[in-house]
Design a protein around this nucleic acid. Sequence first.
DNA 1: AGCTGGTCCTGGCAGC
DNA 2: TGCTGCCAGGACCAGC
Length: 275
Amino acid sequence: MPELPEVQTIVNDLQKITSDTITGFWTDFPKAIKSENIGSKITNQKIKSVMRNGKNIIIEIANEKFIVIHLKMTGKLILTKLQPAAYKLEAVPKHLHHIFYLKKNGALEFHDIRKFATIEIISKTKLLEITAKKGVDPFSTEFTIEKFTELIERKKHKSIKSILMDQTVISGIGNIYASEIPFDSKINPHRKISSLSPAELKLLQKSILKILKKAIELRGTSFSDYRDGNDKKGGFQNFLKVYGKAGKKCVKCDTIIEKGTVEQRSTFHCPACQK
DNA sequence: AGCTGGTCCTGGCAGC
DNA sequence: TGCTGCCAGGACCAGC
């Protein structure tokens, strides 16, 4: 499932479509598109930039309009060299649901197995509204220990895991890294925020940056479906310590990794290493 | 206001 | 073997 490192990898790969022009759009699943008349809004528009905001991919086009894409669990954006004429639209691959045709780069294919991913065309005003609702980006200079402390102030009764997942606190962390980060900090993800000492909070902040940074270096985690902009797997799945490891031995102490639930999401930790 | 639980969707797998 | 049914997941929304 694409989280910050995966989305960042895709956005990096998509930099090459900057200054290209969208020549057309095709879809067989309009339900995923939250805006009307997408084709006429984006056709013949030049791409000004490709950015990330939390787990959103934002493609800026002319007239201060933005294509906002959220890949949810199984969405994939893959750049191909295929020209529009090469697509047999009556027989596209099963999970290919949208295609952005490009003047120079061929096409940007949007695949999605579970059809949860969304596309939206929004104005600059709306974009600012969306980003204002989001918490701090871990890689922005705003992500200081003071800001972190302030953001969790009203959420002290919540668990550490749920805070890491809360996009209005820190934007970009999903279920995989929300288990891996507390393991790196040696902190039990089920603990309440209020139980954290200032030193532990600092440790957690350090682990957020460390784990996300390493995952970006390895081009993300391909736990099941994730692929980068070139349809290649990431590498961080080989470095997972607890996520998906229930019943297996902890790499550090041989204790059996436990699987629990936080807000209906599976959560993994080592009961010996993580206090 | 804040919390819970339902919803979207389908591949993969456990159990019979 | 073939079927059924459950689970995974992010974000949003209805209802209390």
